[in-house]
Amino acid sequence: MINRKNLARLAGVGAAATVALGLFSTGAANADTFVPLPGGEIVKTLSDGTVVTVRLVGESANINPSLGSTPVHRNAWVSGSAQVELSGTGGDVGGKIYPGYTVGCQVNIAGGGASGGVEGSLDWSDGQNVKPGVGASSGGDLSLGPGQATSFYILDIEEADDFGSESHKKRNKFSGSSGSVTWADSTIGLTGCAGYAQARSFVSVEVETDSVITWVTLWGQPFSLG
């Protein structure tokens, strides 16, 4: 197995996080296939007048051929940048950015979520406001069968907890009115899927003001893993 490291540049917090993800092999192509993706933007006005703007820019995927040349192995390296701006009533409260990907095997993930056996600790009760759970995966090495889908985070930020012990966070916490996180060549490695496979990025943002706590989720465009 090949291992890669990717660097997440955290704007607004003056810190950097190294994202280390494993790598599985993928489809039986003879060369990498570069897929530019359009990203997107969502603007949500909260009940107290706070305006949350989430953007996904510079998004792309590089689909890599399988080292084993088997149809059940796929691999892609993904890149992008999530940008958040706050304005209005709570325009300086800061927030938390959770970037990640949903991957499905023979399941439609185009609707913002996945209809099928969604795994991982995410609250999918509202497809537009996906809420990360404490135990959600932060690795891109996946094994899925037909009709299954799962989600994972690309960040694994090491920092000290309240007691000085090492802890790992799946979000970039920013203060003030804006924050961002950029990732490059994060790996999606999928094995076990004999049918078609898709992936789709998401950026979930948590904002807490004096009167409201909310999640805003922006979905990227689905792309084929083969």
Rank of each mutant, 00 (worst) to 15 (best):
I2C: 01
G140K: 10
D156G: 15
S138K: 15
N30T: 06
P65E: 04
V134Y: 15
N75E: 07
V93S: 03
A110H: 09
G145L: 01
L67S: 08
T182V: 10
S180H: 05
S138G: 15
D123N: 05
L86M: 05
Y98R: 03
E158F: 09
S79M: 08
I188H: 05
N62E: 01
H168L: 15
G100W: 02
G179D: 09
V103M: 09
F24C: 10
G139A: 14
A160N: 04
Q198H: 07
A110S: 13
A160F: 10
S165Y: 14
G68A: 02
S115I: 07
V130S: 00
G22N: 03
F34N: 14
L86T: 06
C193S: 10
G49Q: 09
V72R: 12
S186K: 07
D32P: 08
G12T: 04
S87T: 08
T187P: 00
S180E: 06
V212I: 12
N129P: 01
H73P: 05
P36W: 08
A199E: 07
L190H: 15
S125L: 10
V207S: 03
W77I: 00
L144C: 11
W215C: 09
K5A: 04
D210P: 01
L46P: 12
E208A: 09
T209P: 02
D161G: 11
S143E: 11
F202R: 00
L155P: 07
W215P: 14
A8Y: 04
S186A: 10
K170A: 13
Q198M: 10
G226A: 13
